[in-house]
Design a protein around this nucleic acid. Structure first.
Length: 822
RNA sequence: GCGGAUGUGGUGAAAUUGGUAUACACGCCAGACUUAGGAUCUGGUGUCGCAAGACGUGGAAGUUCGAGUCUUCUCAUCCGCACCA
C-alpha cells in the first residue's frame, strides 16, 4: 500500500476527462452553483497565486457537486494584452502563436493539478468568436451613447507605447511596467462609466456581507462622490477687455459653500482653456508662460512636491460681496476634477492656505470654532459658526451650506452639484494584440460602425511588431476598407480595446452551451438559470486577488448594468459573493522572478503531487490571509496524505456506511467517532461563510490521531467513509482512489451528522478560584450543579483552606468558578 | 494626512464569539526500529523556577465572578487612497 502520487493522480485525471465528470448538466430544474475564479492571463506558466486561487474555487466546486448541486465551474484565458507583443519584440514570436502555445501548456497544468473545470466551456478571449460578440456589444453601446470619442489629455506610457485608463495608473506609473506616465493630448474612445456613477456607488450596499469590506471601501473612494455648489465667477471689465470678450466667466465647484465669504483669490489649472487661450494669443509675459509650461510638464509626482503658481492679472467679481478677486494659475488645481478651477479660501483650506502664505495673499477667516476664537495661524477646516458673512452670520456650517446653496439657486447664479472622482473609462490602445474597435472613418460619413453581419473585424496575421508605433496603423493594407454606409474608400479604426473589456463580460459567456457559441454570446435561458437562485443574483462564489478590487471588478459591474439596460440581462450585480485571497509569500516577500523567491508549481507536483500542493495551500493559512511558503510544511502535508492513504488498510469494502451501535464501543472508539463527526460538522461550516479550510483540515487530522488510538474496523471504515468525503474537495485524487477501492465511490456525497456520538457519559470541568484555573474534575454529564460544586470544592480544597467562598458559578459543560475572600 | 486591517509559542496558526489560552501542523529535543536515515513509530516541547508556584495573547487602564475576545487610550506593522476643491 505504498502511496504513489503520480500513478494515482494520472489515473483519476484520465478518468475524469473520459467521463466528462465536471461538465455542468443542462437539467435546469436542479439547484445550481456558479463557482468562478478570476481567469488568468496566459503568461506561460501558472504561478502559486493561480494555484491558490484555483485550489479554492475547485474545493468549492467539488463540495457543491457532492451536495448534489449542478455546478458550473468554468475557466478561460484573458488572452489579449501587451505581454504577447513584448514577447514578439523580444523573441520574434507571433503574439498569436505565443499566446496559444502558452494556453496549451497552462491547460496541461490545470489537468495535473486536478482542477475540476468544465473542459467544454474553456475559452480564450482572443478567439475570433469572442471578439465577434464583443464588437457587437461595442456597437450597441456606441448607439446608446455609452461609448464616445473625444480628444483629451491622456495617460501615456512611453514604454508600452499606449494610453492607459486612470485606474491603470498607479502612483503616477504604468500598472504593468512601472514606467512613469506622461500626459499626451490625443483622440480616444471612452465608455461613459460616469453615467452609472451613482448606481455603482449605491449598489455597493447590495454587496455588503457578500464582498470584503475593504473592496467596497476602495470602490466607494474611487467613485468619490461629493456634493456641493457650482457657480460662475464673472470677469471684471478690464479682464473682459483683456480676453477680447472671448470668456465672460468660468465655473468653479466647492463642497464648502459656507466659506464663500472667505474667498481671497481663485485659481485655474495650468491646462485650463482660458490659460491656453492667453498663451496662444500672447496675452501673458514670457516668464509667466514658461512657468505655466513647467507646471504642465511636471510629472504628477513632482507636481505634488511644492505648490506654485503665477497671477494672470485677471480679476473676477465675488458673486455675493461684489469685491474684486484675483485669478491665479496654480499647480495644485487639477484639470480633470470638477471644472479645473477653484475658489480659494485660505483661512479654511490647507492647500489654499499654503499657497496664500507663499504668495502673500489675504487670509480672511469667516468660520470660527463653536467654542473659542478664530485663529489665522493655520487653516481651520472644521465646521463652525459663520462670521463676516453678511446675512449668514451666526449660522453653523451645515445650515449655512444649504442656505447658501438655496440662495444661489434662487438668484440663479449657482447650482447644487454632485461631482465624482470617477472619470470615463478610456479604452483605446495603440497596440496590435487586442480586439479591434469595429469602426470605420469615412471622409463623408464620419465615424461609421461596422455592420454586425461583418463581425468580427479580425486582426491581420501578417504584422511587423517592433515596438515602434501601432502595428495596425503601420500595416499596408488592413486599415483600408469601404465605408459600411456609403461604400466609398475609408479607413478602419486602428486602435484596439483595453483588455479589461474582455474580462468585463466573460462570466456571461460561460452561460451558453458551447454548441451554440457560434450563434449567441450567451443564452437568456442559461443566464436566467446560472445567474439567479432563490432571489439571489450573480455568480455564487467569485474568487480572486485583491489587486482587482477596483479595475476589473468596477468594469464588470459597469458592463452588467449596461447589458441590463440594453435588455440582455435582468439583474444589477454580477458577483454575489467575492472571496479575495491573500498573496503567496516566500521569505516574507511576494514571490517574484526578480527576487528569485518563486516556487514552481510543476516542480512541486513532480516531487509530491497535486494533492500535496493543494493540501498545503489550504492548510497553511485561511484564504484571505497571506500565505507564507514553507518547504518543510509542504513535506508535512505530503506525510499526512501518505499516512491517510496507507492507513486505509484498516478499513473494509462496503457500499454503505457501516452501522455502529455507539453504546457498545470502548472509550477510545467513542472518542474516535466523536472526532470524525466533529470534523464533519466543521467541514459543513466552511463553505457557507467562514472559508476556514485550515481548521477543517485540522479537524480531520485530529480525527486521524484519535482513530490511531483504537483498532475497531467498523469505526475505521465509517471514519474513512466520511473523511474521504470531507477531504475530496482538498485532495481529490487520493480520496477518489480510496473511495473507489473500498466504497465504489458511493460515499462522495452528503454525509449525515449523528448526534449521539456527541453525547458523553462524563465531562471534564475546569475549576478556577477567582478566575484562575487551579485543577479539573470529572463528573457525570448530567450531574447537578450542587454536586458539581461540592466535588469542585473537595478537589480544590488546597486553595480554599481558611478562606470564605462568597460566590459559586457553574458554567455548563465548561467550568466551575469559586470566588473567595480571606 | 485620511480610511481599513492585523498584532497570540522558535514558525504557520486555533480558540464553539465573555468561560480550562496556544487545537492542528512545522521546527526542535529524547527514545525505538534500522548497516544507514532528510524514512517510519513513540514521547516531550509557552516563559521563569530544583520545586511549590509565579508569569503569560504588542503596551497601559477599565467593565466583569471571569477578558485573546467588550470599552478607552497608546505603540507597532501592513494595505488602500491621497493637492478630488
Amino acid at each position: 500500500m505504498e502511496y504513489s502520487s503520480k500513478a494515482i493522480e494520472a489515473k483519476w485525471q484520465e478518468y475524469w476527462a473520459k467521463n466528462r465528470s465536471f461538465e455542468p448538466s443542462e437539467d435546469f430544474t436542479k439547484e445550481k452553483k456558479y463557482i468562478l475564479s478570476m481567469f488568468p492571463f496566459p503568461s506561460g506558466r501558472l504561478h502559486m497565486g493561480h494555484v491558490r486561487n484555483y485550489t479554492l474555487s475547485d474545493a468549492f466546486a467539488r463540495y457543491y457537486r457532492q451536495q448534489g448541486f449542478n455546478v458550473l465551474h468554468p475557466i478561460g484565458f484573458d488572452s489579449f494584452g501587451m505581454p504577447a507583443e513584448n514577447a514578439a519584440i523580444k523573441n520574434g514570436s507571433h503574439p498569436k502563436g505565443w499566446t496559444y502555445d502558452n494556453i496549451d501548456y497552462m491547460k496541461g497544468e490545470f489537468k495535473t493539478l486536478g482542477f475540476s473545470f468544465s473542459k467544454e466551456r474553456e475559452l480564450a478571449t482572443s478567439d475570433e468568436l469572442y471578439t465577434k460578440f464583443e464588437q457587437g456589444f461595442i456597437i450597441d453601446m456606441y448607439e446608446k451613447g455609452l461609448l464616445y470619442r473625444k480628444k483629451g489629455f491622456l495617460n501615456w506610457c512611453p514604454h508600452d507605447q499606449t494610453v492607459l485608463a486612470n485606474e491603470q495608473v498607479v502612483d503616477g506609473c504604468c500598472w504593468r511596467c512601472d514606467t512613469p506616465i506622461v500626459k499626451k493630448d490625443m483622440n480616444q474612445y471612452y465608455f461613459k462609466i460616469t453615467q452609472y456613477g451613482d448606481e455603482l456607488l449605491d449598489d455597493l450596499k447590495k454587496l455588503e456581507g457578500g464582498w470584503p469590506k475593504q473592496v467596497l471601501t476602495m470602490q466607494e473612494n474611487w467613485i468619490g462622490k461629493s456634493n456641493g455648489l457650482a457657480f460662475d465667477l464673472a470677469f471684471d471689465e478690464a479682464s473682459l477687455e483683456k480676453l477680447n470678450n472671448k470668456f465672460k466667466s468660468f465655473d468653479v465647484f466647492t463642497t464648502r459653500p459656507d466659506t464663500i465669504y472667505g474667498v481671497s483669490y481663485t485659481a485655474l489649472a495650468p491646462e485650463h482653456e482660458i490659460v491656453s487661450y492667453m498663451i496662444e494669443n500672447n496675452l501673458l509675459d514670457k516668464e509667466v508662460v514658461i512657468k505655466i509650461n513647467e507646471m504642465k510638464n511636471a510629472s504628477s509626482i513632482d507636481r505634488q512636491k511644492e505648490k506654485s503658481g503665477v497671477p494672470l492679472n485677471l480679476h473676477v467679481i465675488h458673486p455675493l460681496t461684489k469685491k474684486s478677486v484675483p485669478v491665479w494659475v496654480a499647480n495644485f488645481v487639477l484639470m480633470d476634477y470638477g471644472s479645473g478651477a477653484v475658489m480659494a479660501v485660505p483661512a479654511h483650506d490647507e492647500r489654499d492656505f499654503d499657497f496664500a502664505k507663499k504668495y502673500d495673499l489675504p487670509i480672511n477667516a469667516v468660520i470660527k470654532p463653536f467654542e473659542g476664537e478664530a485663529n489665522c495661524d493655520k487653516a481651520y477646516t472644521e465646521i463652525g459658526e459663520l462670521f463676516n458673512s453678511e446675512s449668514f452670520n451666526t449660522l453653523n456650517s451645515k445650515d449655512a451650506q444649504s442656505k447658501i446653496i438655496e440662495y444661489f439657486e434662487e438668484k440663479k447664479i449657482g447650482k447644487k452639484t454632485t461631482n465624482y472622482k470617477l472619470k470615463d473609462w478610456g479604452v483605446s490602445r495603440q497596440r496590435y494584440w487586442g480586439a479591434p474597435i469595429p469602426f470605420v472613418h469615412c471622409n463623408d460619413c464620419g465615424i461609421v460602425m461596422e455592420k454586425k453581419e461583418n463581425l468580427p473585424v479580425a486582426l491581420p496575421h501578417d504584422v511587423l511588431i517592433n515596438g515602434e508605433g501601432n502595428p495596425l496603423e503601420n500595416h499596408t493594407t488592413w486599415k483600408h476598407c469601404k465605408c459600411p454606409s456609403c461604400g466609398k474608400d475609408a479607413i478602419r479604426e486602428t486602435d484596439t480595446m483595453d483588455t479589461f473589456v474582455e474580462s468585463s463580460w466573460y462570466f456571461l459567456r460561460f452561460c451558453a452551451s458551447p454548441k451554440n457559441w457560434e450563434n449567441e454570446a450567451f443564452s437568456a435561458e442559461q443566464i436566467k438559470y446560472w445567474m439567479h437562485q432563490n432571489g439571489h443574483e450573480g455568480v455564487d462564489h467569485y474568487i480572486g486577488g485583491i489587486e482587482h478590487a477596483i479595475l476589473h471588478l468596477l468594469y464588470a459591474r459597469f458592463f452588467t448594468k449596461v447589458f441590463r439596460d440594453l435588455g440582455y440581462l435582468d439583474f444589477d450585480e454580477p458577483f454575489e459573493r467575492l472571496l479575495t485571497q491573500g498573496m503567496v509569500l516566500k521569505d516574507g516577500a511576494k514571490m517574484s522572478k526578480s527576487k528569485g523567491n518563486t516556487v514552481d508549481p510543476d516542480a512541486l507536483i513532480e516531487k509530491y503531487g497535486a494533492d500535496t500542493a493543494r493540501l498545503f495551500i489550504l492548510f497553511a493559512a485561511p484564504p484571505t490571509q497571506e500565505l507564507e511558503w514553507n518547504d518543510s510544511a509542504v513535506e508535512g502535508a505530503y506525510r499526512f496524505i501518505k499516512r491517510f492513504y496507507e492507513r486505509s488498510s484498516n478499513i473494509y469494502k462496503t457500499d454503505t456506511i457501516p452501522a455502529i451501535v455507539h453504546s457498545s464501543l470502548s472509550k477510545e472508539e467513542k472518542f474516535a467517532r466523536k472526532k470524525v463527526y466533529e470534523a464533519l460538522v466543521r467541514a459543513n461550516d466552511v463553505y457557507g461563510e467562514k472559508y476556514t479550510f485550515n481548521t477543517m483540515i485540522a479537524g480531520v487530522m485530529e480525527a486521524m490521531n484519535a482513530l490511531n488510538l483504537q483498532a475497531n474496523s467498523d469505526v475505521w471504515s465509517e471514519a474513512y467513509w466520511i473523511l474521504t468525503s470531507i477531504m475530496e474537495p482538498v485532495i481529490p485524487h487520493t480520496c477518489w482512489e480510496i473511495s473507489s477501492k473500498y466504497f465504489s465511490l458511493n460515499n462522495l456525497r452528503v454525509q449525515k451528522v449523528i448526534e449521539e456520538v456527541f453525547v458523553e457519559d462524563t465531562i471534564t470541568l475546569g475549576v478556577s478560584i477567582n478566575g484562575k484555573r487551579r485543577c479539573e474534575i470529572e463528573v457525570a454529564s448530567d450531574e447537578s450543579d450542587e454536586n458539581i460544586i461540592s466535588i469542585a470544592k473537595e478537589s480544590a480544597s488546597k486553595w480554599l483552606e481558611g478562606k470564605n467562598i462568597i460566590k459559586e458559578i457553574v458554567v455548563p459543560k465548561k467550568l466551575v468558578n469559586l470566588v473567595i475572600k480571606d
